[in-house]
Nucleic acid binder design. Structure first.
Length: 186
DNA sequence: CCCTGATTCGC
DNA sequence: GCGAATCAGG
């Protein structure tokens, strides 16, 4: 996959929005997060305080990396001052490219769910991570708990079952088996 | 173990 | 220029 102007644009946009490299990679498709990060660096827009405090320097020889001919010269390089780019003006996004909005979790209509499932949910909600919207990821259960209009509102946040939006317990109540649970495979 | 970004270096 | 491998922090 080549970095077409178009793709670079998406990259910039998403990176600017604080999207993670892996997310961007998935969005673009055909590239890995490494590719994205690499590109980001090449584009010069690497800094963006997110995670991982910069840890530039010391590198040993990771076995695979080969030391290039040792440059004997201990040339006194000029100041290697870390100049932070002012990032200039931020150009407002003119991209109407809106990916289908996130399907926000359905209301936990605790109606016709099996007692067992409900019990499970009640139990699981006690150890829920109680995440806020911003803290949700693709692998955190997005089951909402509480009243969105109050402070007492959070998302389950437990590990989701692969490919599902919720954790096991919430999947159980979210997807009522029409007959019997028949899914397997992924 | 999962994730994140950062860096290096062969291609 | 590209990105896998690797590193390093959370």
């Amino acid at each position: 996959m080549a970095w077409t102007d178009d793709r670079v644009e998406v990259l910039k946009k998403m990176w600017g929005e604080g999207k993670s490299a892996s997310q961007i990679a998935k969005e673009l498709g055909g590239v890995t997060r490494n590719a994205v990060i690499g590109k980001v660096h090449r584009l010069g827009l690497s800094n963006r305080a997110t995670t991982t405090t910069a840890k530039p320097a010391p590198k040993k020889e990771p076995a695979k990396a080969k030391p290039k001919s040792a440059p004997q010269d201990t040339a006194p390089k000029a100041s290697e001052t870390r100049v932070t780019m002012p990032k200039a003006t931020n150009i407002p996004p003119r991209k109407p490219i809106i990916k289908a909005g996130q399907p926000l979790p359905p209301q936990p209509s605790a109606n016709e769910v099996s007692k067992e499932a409900l019990a499970k949910v009640a139990k699981v909600e006690k150890k829920a991570k109680k995440l806020r919207l911003m803290e949700l990821t693709e692998k955190t259960c997005k089951w909402p708990v509480g009243d969105p209009a109050t402070e007492d509102f959070w998302f389950c946040g437990l590990s989701v079952e692969t490919g599902k939006p919720y954790c096991e317990a919430h999947n159980a109540v979210a997807f009522q088996p029409m007959s019997a649970r028949r899914d397997r495979r992924r």
